[in-house]
Nucleic acid binder design. Sequence first.
DNA 1: ACTAATATCTCGACCTTCAAGATATTTTCT
DNA 2: AGAAAATATCTTGAAGGTCGAGATATTAGT
Lengths: 167, 167
Amino acid sequence: MSSHQDDPTLDPQEQFTSLMRGLGTRTILHQQNVAASLGLYNNDFISLDILRETGPITAGELSKKTGLATGSITSLVDRLEKIGYVRRQNDPNDRRRVIIVPEYESKEEIRNTYEPLHKAMLNLASSYTPEELALISQFIGNASTVLEEQIQHLSSTTRSKSSKTTR
Amino acid sequence: MSSHQDDPTLDPQEQFTSLMRGLGTRTILHQQNVAASLGLYNNDFISLDILRETGPITAGELSKKTGLATGSITSLVDRLEKIGYVRRQNDPNDRRRVIIVPEYESKEEIRNTYEPLHKAMLNLASSYTPEELALISQFIGNASTVLEEQIQHLSSTTRSKSSKTTR
DNA sequence: ACTAATATCTCGACCTTCAAGATATTTTCT
DNA sequence: AGAAAATATCTTGAAGGTCGAGATATTAGT
């Protein structure tokens, strides 16, 4: 993987999408590596990441966001609770619900594992002027929004085609 | 996930890393959705993506790049070969080796599934001036390099700590 | 030739994931 | 208020991917 698809023969826009795809592939591989080095399963780690971003949410919401079945969430939360990364909290207003509260602020392991990437990204950021960084940040936000819309679209269309043939 | 961590109280650099992390989370969730909508397992789809980028590689190289055990690669390639996404080719110079050749150019399904994202990304690209897009593209390439280095670092340090306690 | 190194495959064990049903709680309707 | 429907999570058993170790085949080194 020496060249990151920076094929100069492509027109700028196609080159851009190609680069974005390469970034996506590496993002996924990196995430899998981080999860493995922490001794976590991928979905467990992704769930922690979602919880970090959203704060405490119910088991059902986590099921929707991850796309996992509710039964899978139960055992996933069991695992995370056992190692102290989250805890279950009852909702006083609706006693059916279980709120999952992230508890890994104290856990240094996750922060330590992410620290090298964080530093490297800060270092990358510092190589740009404030104006450039503002543009890049604005772009990342837009790209996130695009992805979020795509996820919505995909998960809605997938649910309708229940007549899967092979596999 | 209404706000993409665009917390204005953070300093610009921390805001940037926060945005990058959000982009990563969404990238992973999107990838899982795409794989599911194609009826593929995550690692199968990731492997296709790697093959698309690298071209034909051996089973061992794919094992290294994905981090999967060689035994897993065997069944993974079995699955992909059965549905016609790849084929096995013998290396005439070294008859132990098995080269995995991507065959999904003809398969429209993958392209169709990625088409909406591709279009949306092209649309996003067109909202920037050529100079801005050049800066963004250059940044994405740098970010990819950073991630690649992190993956290298993680996979080398993980292999050494074979004394995993729990799980 | 013989040994070591390399590359892939086979096999059994483990464990996540899923789907469906069970349980508990809340909401709606009469 | 009381019953039925809807909601939220958990339990259970089956299915199947992943891993690790050993097996097999091939190549490289002495």
